[in-house]
């Protein structure tokens, strides 16, 4: 696991604030998504953005050809700022932070749902709805299978884990019984 650079959060926050101030949040959000798709789809683009050995003028020429016409003026200005600060290498991380921040502003949280056996999309939706009511937010769950849970399911939203699995209950029972055994070596 790799941590995103702290600076990514600051740039993402600044872009978000400017987008709101300029009433261009939806356009900028669309641009960010597009940029992230481009980065995910092209290793060459990632290599290019990280390569500061190229002359600045040559880099700017490529960037202009790529994005000057397609991006919203605010996003394009942001890209040029990153280029001048030699920070285009973390464009993807900034994009991820931007999306997370935007989702948080909209009251949206993402989480994972692990169950011993695959759940129907209706069940997943129901669990997400219940969790959403509990948290007061809209929850988007990514479901997955984990046979080790034996039965039931386990939810993870942010740092919080709600373990309603059979394996989790057996672990709790074990801890309760061990604690009842008195002092241990």
């Amino acid at each position: 696991m790799k941590l995103r650079p702290r600076v990514a959060r600051r740039y993402a926050r600044a872009l978000h604030d400017q987008a709101i101030a300029g009433c261009a949040l939806s356009e900028v959000s669309r641009d960010v998504e597009q940029l992230r798709r481009s980065l995910a789809g092209s290793i060459d683009l990632v290599s290019f953005l990280n390569n500061y050995l190229l002359p600045r003028a040559a880099r700017m020429k490529v960037l202009r050809a790529l994005w000057a016409e397609t991006l919203h003026p605010l996003t394009w200005r942001f890209v040029r700022l990153l280029e001048s600060k030699r920070r285009l290498g973390i464009l993807d991380e900034i994009g991820a932070e931007f999306v997370e921040f935007e989702e948080a502003c909209q009251g949206l949280v993402r989480g994972s749902l692990a169950s011993a056996y695959a759940l129907s999309s209706r069940d997943v939706g129901e669990i997400a709805g219940q969790l959403g009511r509990h948290l007061g937010k809209q929850v988007i769950l990514q479901a997955g299978e984990e046979r080790g849970l034996l039965g039931g399911y386990r939810l993870r939203v942010g740092d919080w884990v709600y373990d309603l699995s059979l394996a989790g209950r057996l672990r709790m029972l074990r801890q309760t019984m061990m604690a009842g055994c008195g002092p241990r070596n």
Binding site: D159, W160, V161, L173, T176
Partner: peptide
């Protein structure tokens, strides 16, 4: 101990 054990959900903050 089994009778007293209540199978509440285990809620924990995890990193």
């Amino acid at each position: 101990q089994l009778a007293e054990f209540d199978g509440k959900a285990d809620i924990a903050e995890v990193g």
